[in-house]
């Protein structure tokens, strides 16, 4: 049995095509990439839970428009991070198979900007309410 080949170890043609050829990297790297993907997914799930919680639990505390804005922002962020984490995982996997430099994680700045945006909306609403 050859250690590496372009098809992977008995993968279907579909998977091989998605992964774009190359050779299997060190299995430790494949597992590390999988764990990083799962960490992003948990981030996305936390944002999802946060968004639903704001809409569902803050009815007595927040004005409806604030509640809805924050909830939708968090849920959109969860959507982008959740979907983006898969493509991030796939791009890293492809790069490792071709021994090219790993791509930059564009979901990281998206998460940072999204978090800052949610915080900014909160600050603005608190200031508007205070005056």
């Amino acid at each position: 049995m050859t250690a590496t080949n372009s098809q992977g170890s008995g993968r279907s043609g579909f998977s091989a095509r998605i992964l774009g050829g190359g050779t299997e990297p060190d299995p430790r790297f494949t597992l590390a990439n999988e764990r990083t993907f799962l960490a992003w997914i948990r981030t996305s799930l936390a944002l999802l839970a946060g968004g639903v919680a704001v809409e569902a639990f803050m009815a007595d505390l927040f004005a409806p428009e604030l509640r809805r804005t924050i909830a939708v922002l968090l849920l959109v962020l969860a959507l982008v991070i959740g979907g983006g984490s898969f493509f991030r995982w796939l791009n890293v996997e492809r790069a490792m198979r071709h021994k090219t430099p790993l791509p930059l994680p564009w979901i990281a700045p998206v998460l940072a900007a999204g978090g800052a945006l949610v915080a900014a909306v909160m600050v603005i609403f608190v200031l508007v309410r205070a005056t």
């Binding site: 590496t4 170890s9 998977s15 299997e24 299995p27 494949t30």
Partner: peptide, 14 residues
């Protein structure tokens, strides 16, 4: 995969 030093990525699960 670790034993064989060869493992296909888990594309279906992810």
């Amino acid at each position: 995969g670790i034993q064989q030093e060869n493992m296909a990525p888990n594309i279906a699960s992810t």
